[in-house]
Design a protein around this nucleic acid. Sequence first.
DNA 1: ACTTTCCAGTGATTGAAGTCACACACTTTT
DNA 2: AAAAGTGTGTGACTTCAATCACTGGAAAGT
Lengths: 261, 261
Amino acid sequence: MSSRAMVSSSFSHLGTSHSLLRKTPSPYGLAAPETCLGCQLGNTEFFCKLSESSKKALDLIKHVSSYPERSIIFMEGEEARGVYILCQGRAKLLTTNGEGKTLILKIARPGEVLGLNSLLTNRPHDITVETLQPCQLAFVSRQEFMRYIREHSDACFHVAQHAGRDCHSAYESVRSIGLSSSASEKLARFLVDWSADGKITEGILRVKLALTHEEIAQLIGSSRETVSRTLSEFKRQNLLELNGSTMLLRNKAALQNMAGI
Amino acid sequence: MSSRAMVSSSFSHLGTSHSLLRKTPSPYGLAAPETCLGCQLGNTEFFCKLSESSKKALDLIKHVSSYPERSIIFMEGEEARGVYILCQGRAKLLTTNGEGKTLILKIARPGEVLGLNSLLTNRPHDITVETLQPCQLAFVSRQEFMRYIREHSDACFHVAQHAGRDCHSAYESVRSIGLSSSASEKLARFLVDWSADGKITEGILRVKLALTHEEIAQLIGSSRETVSRTLSEFKRQNLLELNGSTMLLRNKAALQNMAGI
DNA sequence: ACTTTCCAGTGATTGAAGTCACACACTTTT
DNA sequence: AAAAGTGTGTGACTTCAATCACTGGAAAGT
């Protein structure tokens, strides 16, 4: 854990940090819209589908702040002080065991609400969230969030939906990790899933990996070396190519087949 | 999959099945309270914490029916026609892969709402639910459930909480399966968790196992033989004793230690 | 009482992947 | 430029548990 992350982590524990950070409009190279009313996440995200009045009410209680990469937003075991809505950047949701082994449950993208289930069920956080890039997050304290969803029934419904989605994605994780027979199957599945946000240029599917082999291993429940070796094997079989962090998927069908999709 | 289960499964697809079954008050040896108003599940379960008016409203739209053991309540991939509130008995939540391998995500107990996240997120079921014992379930159709939670904000909040709990339990599964280093660790963890509803008589913790080795294997992501062998090993080490389906936990502390708790 | 089916126990074998170890490339820091 | 840090590639070794195969017992159906 880098000291930078630690600094940011303690930031997030200061009551005044959010208003403080709001006075620095564009830290870490992020544009800082500072409002959800003009949110550009589109209609696909829950909190963008709220009624106008609920949007405005949310706007009044949220505190947007920016974090550098590798910031710990909250940690497993910590009391849940509120929820964080991821506005910009990516963050990993992870859990660790005593021996330092880490499992990444999911890579969160903008629109994701983090720490929701701990707040709803009134428990300490069951996961750790760490930014992968500079991120912008809107914080809403426990008290204000609870009041908000009690007073805005449409928001409450969206919260329930969001929790349902989280649950679904967790089931996907268990299935992938628990029902796979080999590491290549899991890696293939990861690559196919990840390629969803790749782009096709000149007939070739290009995807930004932007994860280390170590992180991929933690995502699929394997070891760094196995990921490295299996990726090499995939290259040898001409299923893909790697140029830096860009991957060219040459034979997605074959990978899907291996993944059992 | 037994033919009995299949019959019950198709039962659950007939629109009239629920009212039909309601006319047989005590099938499969179950008492049939037929109402949630006098529900004896206590205050620990979400749907028992509803306001009086919400309870009454739920009572009007639910249809209680009974199922024999091994009934499939719904299957992965199926359209979600509604939710099922488990009133009596136990049911397993499972997922399978193409090769017939099965993973049990959880054993549901009375009070559990089944099929919630599929309904909330408007997707096909992501899991299969099969009864382990004769069960009584209250069914609420998609349409009526959606209207219900829109009109009863306290119910909506409870639904969100319930989804949050499901999510938490799914995270527990992933952690247990993905972060364990050995089968004995996972088995020990399962036994300790399971022993939560055991009873101490004469200073000894007695737990009803009521699961086959095969099912335990599917719960911890292992094989039947490994469960059998590891249990024998635990007996040899005097950690536990088995008399039929009753387990005597002789050294819970040692098991907790193995489980990393 | 009979088969048939289900479940549990245990040995033998094997293969996949974790672990250890080291080399190399590339950045960033000093 | 040197040093330190981080990420990747690969060989060697080892181990854990999956799989196959068979036995015997208990339960259920006939």
